[in-house]
Design a protein around this nucleic acid. Structure first.
Lengths: 334, 334
DNA sequence: CTGAAAGCGCTTACAG
DNA sequence: CTGAAAGCGCTTACAG
């Protein structure tokens, strides 16, 4: 394997100067189309590969975006990451993706590494219990950075926050369960005190209060395992539940199946996020739908506008959510 | 925001030459520890950020690895990608991850883009119906590249292939179902003719043949939806099934739940991959377990050895698999 | 153990 | 529309 060809080799082959080759590389329309074709042909002949590191050094832009996710194995975040990556790829940006695994120290390291790699922007769904200075290094680097789905840094002017309108979603789900005849509705899952939990709970609490009813909350891990356990931990008069997320709800669904309780009749259940599984389990699970694909595309567009045109996104954006009523809350088969 | 400090600024601040700063950056032990500390302090004071693009240009290595996955939303691949990324991060490599979405043209573009970004190696779980030349550009670039979980390029000497010993897994599952008393076992899911499908089916076919029984195969998409449909498409005498993967099996599980068929008693079911859901649905799903975490770590280690020490991995590696028997095939509750 | 010098492969004004 | 020249921020022999 000999050394890779450079623009000098291309220039020699095509009989032009290296500046011209560089302009062709950038699709400049300054170059006559015949010249452009000749250069392109020369590149193909000698197997030229563009060296972005060199370009980046000169132009200070790598065409690279960094994405740090607190839990990449969670399908909700996987979907977000995938759509964001594919949308950015369509615009010519590669995406460095990393899983912080809810580890704030690791997260800070990953963000630092991405900054070293010269990312043009950063998108972070942060781990909680942040060590605090993770975003300070971003500030020093002076690159666009967004907080998505979770907010740990209050400086939303610097690091705009985008998420879903969770409160409206849980309020909607609560009203739905009431309309279905539920007498006592519980809120299950989510770690108490965390911003998302409190947000998702707030709509529920507001509607319960408005109805003059008594809330019943059962906090815990956001996992199927906790959902299975929760089935046995509910007060006997509880006949409906809104879960912090679908994983908890799917766990409850398994737990109820084991008990022989029929969802939609004996108990009414609504999840949160509307991940793909909801429509594919039996009985089908009602859920508050978050349009992750639309959301991720919106984030990508906002980021592109910020990187390329300097348009800072609004400090706080809430995407609307929707209730998808299925068998687990209505009892009606699809 | 002023311009970012460079090693020249650090050198000036620390009162040394820029070469010394560079050596400190590389943790060279040529530098006296007092000098090293002074340089480090200077870096912290002026907020120096290492510029990898410049380093890469000189040293031809970016500390970047590329990962292209045919379906990043599939939890099996998500887990692989996550563990690989985290293992490489621990060794100082950032990972550019991209989803080819089973699109061979997109895949070729993504691989090309990663090569331009100067990745030191490439890991690809390829899309099928490959346009053919995706790996040719890798060959020209002369960088280490592995095919994982799927093989589309026959040149395993150049692009080593690593996957699981699927044939052994399905053979094992078939014997297990026979031992449980199954009379007629079906193989459900997977697109006919694809390498993975045929591999996973081959162990089943071999065992069925050895037992003098009649095979029953039902091919189709690798999705829950197909699993749900499959429940109605089985011959009446079929009383057990091995699924191409867990998604299909989970779909069948939902389908049987809807029909009131009790798994482990009326019908015995084994999935493939042992994704997290298997232990968390009800009844729990038996599955052929692939230790993705161990596999991903092995791939990472092999890749690091290749990149750093030039040790090419074996052309074809098969990780062992294991059968995890649960309620869906044994009828015994955990 | 540290310094001076060359060079990695591009982009970017600036001439022409 | 194209060419000659400077420079991006590092690393790497080579002296000393």
């Amino acid at each position: 394997m000999t050394r890779r060809p450079t623009i000098l080799d291309v220039a020699a082959r095509a009989g032009v100067s290296k500046s011209t080759v560089s302009l062709v590389l950038q699709n400049s329309k300054q170059v006559k189309s015949e010249t452009r074709e000749a250069v392109r042909a020369a590149m193909a002949e000698i197997g030229y590969v563009y060296n972005r590191a060199a370009a980046q050094m000169r132009s200070q832009s790598a065409g690279l975006v960094g994405l740090v996710i607190n839990d990449l194995r969670n399908p909700f975040f996987t979907e977000f990451a995938t759509v964001l990556q594919m949308t950015l790829a369509a615009k010519g940006y590669a995406t460095v993706i990393a899983n912080s695994d809810e580890d704030a120290d690791l997260q800070a390291k990953l963000m630092g590494s991405m900054i070293e790699h010269g990312v043009s922007a950063l998108v972070v769904s942060p781990a909680y219990d942040e060590s605090g200075d993770a975003f300070d290094q971003v500030e020093r680097a002076g690159i666009p950075a967004m907080q998505v789905l979770r907010k740990t840094d209050p400086r939303t002017g610097l690091f705009p926050f985008a998420s879903f309108d969770y409160a409206a979603g849980s309020a909607r789900a609560t009203r739905h369960l009431m309309n279905q005849g539920a007498k006592r509705i519980a809120f299950v899952g989510g770690m108490e005190g965390r911003a998302i939990t409190e947000e998702r709970k707030s709509g529920y609490l507001a509607e319960i209060k408005r109805a003059g009813a008594e809330p019943f909350t059962l906090h815990g891990r956001s996992s199927r395992g906790f959902g299975v356990e929760a089935v046995h931990a509910l007060s006997k008069d509880v006949d409906a539940a809104i879960c912090f997320n679908d994983l908890v709800a799917l766990g409850m669904l398994s737990g109820f199946a084991r008990e022989g309780v029929e969802l939609g009749r004996d108990f009414r259940l609504v999840g949160f996020d509307d991940i793909e599984d909801c429509a594919q389990v039996w009985p089908q699970l009602s859920s508050v739908a978050c349009d992750i694909e639309g959301f991720a595309k919106g984030v990508a567009d906002g980021l592109l506008a910020w990187m390329q045109d300097g348009v800072t996104p609004p400090p706080e954006y809430r995407a609307p959510v929707d209730l998808v009523a299925r068998t687990s809350s209505t009892g009606r088969n699809p």
